[in-house]
Design a protein around this nucleic acid. Structure first.
Lengths: 186, 186
DNA sequence: CTTGACAAACCGTCCAGACGGTATCTTTAT
DNA sequence: ATAAAGATACCGTCTGGACGGTTTGTCAAG
C-alpha cells in the first residue's frame, strides 16, 4: 500500500471531482471513455474510492444527471426572471438556454448523458419525469402549439449539435432563436 | 465440426438476415444486446460467418445505417411524389415520414443507430454527409427559415419518441404535423 | 475506538476479433 | 466436357483485454 490515502480527507470535494472528470472524459474520449477505471484514475482516486462514493456505475451516471439537470434548471430559472411576459415565458427561457449552449464546450458534457438517456430505462424515466413536471407546471402559460413546437425545435437543434450534423453559424442560430421566440408568443 | 456449413451458400440472403437480426436484437434487448455473438447466433450463423460478411462490428453498424437510410430515402422520395407544390416539398415529405414512424414499432429499430450516430465519429460524419447533401439538393425549395425550423422540430419529436419523454396521442401528433406543414409553406 | 474515507489487489464475465480449418462455387486450361 | 485451381462462404475455437464489481486492508477524524 502506498501512502496515498494519507492525504487529507475531503469527501465532498472528491465526489465533485469525480463528477467533473466523468463529464470531461465523456467529452474527450467519447462515451466509451467513461469507465470506472478511467474516471477514478483521472480523478486521482482509486477505483475503490470511486465506488465508495458511487456504489455502481449507474449511480455515477445518476449523479451526472442530477448535476446537469440542476444546472439546466437554474439557468432556466435565471432566464425566466428577466422575462416580464407570462405567456410563453418558460419556452423562451428554454430557447435561450438551449441556444446559449456553446456547441464546442457545453454540448460534449451532455453527449454521454443523452446516450444514457436513450439507452438506460432508469434515466429515461427520470428525464420523462422532468419533462412532465415542467410541462404541468407551465401548462397555463406554455402549452400552446406554438410553444410546444418551439421546444421541439430546440431539441432538434440540440440533437444537431450533438451529432454535428448541421453547421449553423452564429447568425443562423440567432435567427432561429428569434423565430422560435415569435412562435412562443402566438 | 458439425455438418452445418454444408448447407447451400446464399451469401446475399445471409447478409440480409444478419442485418435484420441485428436490428431486431437492438429492439428487443436494447443496445447492449447487439454483440457479435448474439447477432451471429440469432441469425443461425457462426461468429466467423458474421465476421466474413462484416469484417468488424463497425462495418455491421455501417450496414445497418445504409439499410435504414436507404429506406428513409425511399419513403421520402415516395412522399415527395405526391406533392404538387415545389416550395417546401422536401420538408413536408420529411415531416410525413417522421410522423409516420410508429413510436412503438419503428422507432426501436432506430434507437441503437441513433446512439451510434451520436457516439461513433465515423457514423456521425456519414449522417452529416446525408444532411448536407440533402440540404444542398433542396436549397432552392426548402431553405427558408420556416422549413429549417420545421425539420428541426421533427427531429425533436423523433428524439422525444426515442426517449419516450413526451406522451403525444395521435391527435396531438397530427396537429403538430399540420402546423409544421404550414410552417414549411411560408 | 468506532466509523468514514479511501487504497490496492483481485475475480468473473463478457466480448471483439484472430485463426485455422472445411465445404461449395467459379473460372480456367485442356 | 471436365478436371484442376483458385476464390468465396462459411464453421468452431481460442485469446487477450476490458470492465464492473468485491474484498481486504489502512489511515484519519471525531
Amino acid at each position: 500500500m502506498t501512502e496515498a490515502h494519507r492525504r487529507k480527507k475531503q469527501p465532498e470535494q472528491v465526489r465533485q471531482q469525480l463528477l467533473e472528470v466523468a463529464a470531461r472524459l465523456s467529452h474527450e474520449q467519447g462515451v466509451a471513455g467513461i469507465t470506472l477505471d478511467a474516471v477514478s484514475q483521472a480523478a486521482g482516486v482509486s477505483k475503490g474510492g470511486l465506488l465508495h462514493h458511487f456504489p455502481n456505475k449507474l449511480a455515477l451516471l445518476d449523479g451526472l444527471f442530477d448535476d446537469l439537470v440542476t444546472r439546466f434548471d437554474r439557468e432556466i430559472e435565471a432566464a425566466m426572471a428577466h422575462d416580464p411576459v407570462a405567456k410563453g415565458r418558460f419556452t423562451r427561457a428554454y430557447i435561450d438556454v438551449c441556444f446559449a449552449l456553446d456547441p464546442t464546450t457545453d454540448v460534449p458534457g451532455w453527449r454521454m448523458l443523452t446516450i444514457a438517456l436513450i439507452a438506460e430505462p432508469h434515466l429515461k424515466s427520470r428525464w420523462r419525469d422532468w419533462v412532465s413536471r415542467r410541462s404541468a407546471e407551465f401548462a397555463e402559460t406554455d402549452a400552446s402549439t406554438g410553444c410546444v413546437l418551439a421546444r421541439f425545435a430546440c431539441d432538434g437543434v440540440w440533437l444537431a449539435d450533438l451529432m454535428q450534423s448541421h453547421d449553423l453559424d452564429a447568425e443562423a442560430r440567432a435567427g432561429l432563436a428569434e423565430n422560435l421566440k415569435a412562435l412562443s408568443a402566438q
